[in-house]
Computed example of a mutant assay.
Amino acid sequence: MLLENKNAIVYGAGGSVGSAVAHTFAAEGARVFLVGRTTAALEAVAEKIQASGGVADVATVDVMDEDAVEAHADAVVRNAGSLDVSFNAISLPQTGIQGTRFVDLSPDAFDLPIATYPKANFLTARAAGRRMTVQGSGVILTITASPSRTAVALMGGMAPAWAAVEALSRGLAAELGPNGVRVVCLNAAGMPETPQLTEVYSLHADAYGISRDAFQARMTERTLRKQLPTVAEIADVAAFVASDRAAAMTAAIANLSAGMIAD
């Protein structure tokens, strides 16, 4: 198994991407620590992981609260012995953020993702980096989306926020690399089976005056394989990148856009 005897924190584990990654990490042998703001959602994920023979712990933590993040990371190391993987999959509801032109967007709506995503990733990565540096090993994963590197209308502050997370990931990799810590960002195109993408595609479809299915078809056509990535595909790559088999990979933006971005 790719992650046997590894301890992994998954932030935003109650969401579609976070829960899928947590399931895959557990299936690959990791003990997963599920973190989020809604206990019921986390417990539902934990129950499924445990029913499949995996090991999962649940903690309700606000990732914008640096003291809470630090205390939880301490608890993981104290209880499990190490912190080997950290993955941040937090997200915001996108209504009022996407689907509006910059010239019509309020400053608060523009600022919300920029104030949230980079800071949340900074706090969780900092907590992981401090403890991984001491143990001399570890992997920090972040996730963004293709508009960080392409020209896409109606994204509001999301594309700048994702670009900031990618820059943060590279800087962390440079600083933590000499201590045996890798940092990789997963850049994905939209995963249409997730509730958040249903919301996002509906916002963009409404702005263009077309159906959600028509907008999804438009996005699908932009990929080279004419198929958007699935959550399971993202989770599989996350597990590989977090494993020792990807030991040479750091400061990288892993392209999971199905060819929407050509590197």
Rank of each mutant, 00 (worst) to 15 (best):
A41V: 15
T250F: 11
L228M: 10
A188D: 00
A44E: 12
Y11N: 07
S146W: 15
V61M: 08
G18K: 02
M219S: 13
E70G: 09
T116K: 07
Y11C: 13
L176P: 09
M132I: 05
Y201F: 12
S82W: 08
L141K: 01
P113W: 02
V45N: 03
S146M: 15
M155N: 06
A248S: 12
N79A: 15
T116L: 06
D65T: 15
F102K: 15
R37W: 01
N179W: 13
L123M: 01
A173P: 01
P93S: 05
D236A: 14
V241K: 10
A44R: 00
N5S: 13
V184L: 00
M158Q: 08
E47Q: 07
A232R: 03
A207C: 04
D263N: 15
T95R: 15
T250H: 06
A68K: 01
S146K: 15
D74R: 05
L186R: 04
V134F: 13
T194M: 07
A115G: 11
A159D: 12
D111F: 13
R149V: 11
A30Q: 05
A73S: 07
S243Y: 01
E47W: 11
R130K: 09
P160A: 04
A40Q: 02
V231C: 14
S243V: 00
T100H: 06
N255L: 08
M191K: 14
A235N: 03
F33I: 06
E166P: 02
D206N: 09
A159V: 12
G18T: 00
F215E: 03
Y117L: 02
M260I: 15
S16D: 03
D236S: 14
D84G: 09
I114T: 12
A75R: 01
D263A: 13
H72F: 14
V134I: 10
A189K: 12
A254F: 12
N121C: 05
A164Y: 06
D213W: 11
Y11A: 07
P195C: 05
D263M: 14
G18L: 01
N79V: 11
A26R: 08
A167E: 10
D236T: 10
V21I: 08
L203M: 04
A41K: 14
D213G: 09
N79M: 15
I114V: 11
H23W: 11
D263F: 08
A217E: 13
F102D: 06
F122Q: 02
L228S: 09
A22W: 03
F240H: 03
L203I: 04
L3I: 02
D213A: 10
E193Y: 07
E4D: 14
T230S: 04
V85P: 00
A153I: 11
A151F: 12
S91Q: 10
S16V: 05
A247D: 09
V237W: 03
I210Q: 14
T39S: 12
A252S: 15
T133P: 05
A125W: 03
G157N: 05
M219C: 14
I49F: 08
A13T: 01
P178W: 01
P229N: 04
G136N: 11
